[in-house]
Amino acid sequence: MATEYKKPVPRPSVNPEVSAPFWAGTKKHELWLQYSKGSQKFFFPPREVSPGDLTPMEELVWTQVSGKGRIYSYTTIYQPAMAAFAEEAPYVHALIQLDEGARMVGNIVDMTEDEVRNNSLQINTRVEAVFEDVTPEWTLVKWRRIED
């Protein structure tokens, strides 16, 4: 229920229209990213031009991606900035390098408290997107470890 979810939901502040397809995708439990025909690469977060080559918006193609990637780096959070996260601390806040190239921020689910406290997570660990319907309107992308 929306009223029970106390943590921040996404608040698009740069350009909500541009990032809307991303969030429409997560609601369907799919990961969609912009693909630049100019540079032939995926990028994230969503933009009105692609970074590095400034390909204009009309040549950026929303494309469904695999949802698989690797841990690029992470930090274990003991003291969250926002009070709503306090009861879950410590938890992992990671950078995920997608197989398609772009990097995303997210939490790693399915970790035991011991694993978290021992910092047992390794860089390059394979992960896969999972989708968490935190409110009726918003679905967040999180990540779980996989063996492939």
Partner: peptide
């Protein structure tokens, strides 16, 4: 409408 400051900057920069 539909455009942000950094997006407009990107088009002008290009």
């Amino acid at each position: 409408l539909g455009r942000s400051m950094p997006g407009l900057l990107g088009d002008a920069a290009r």
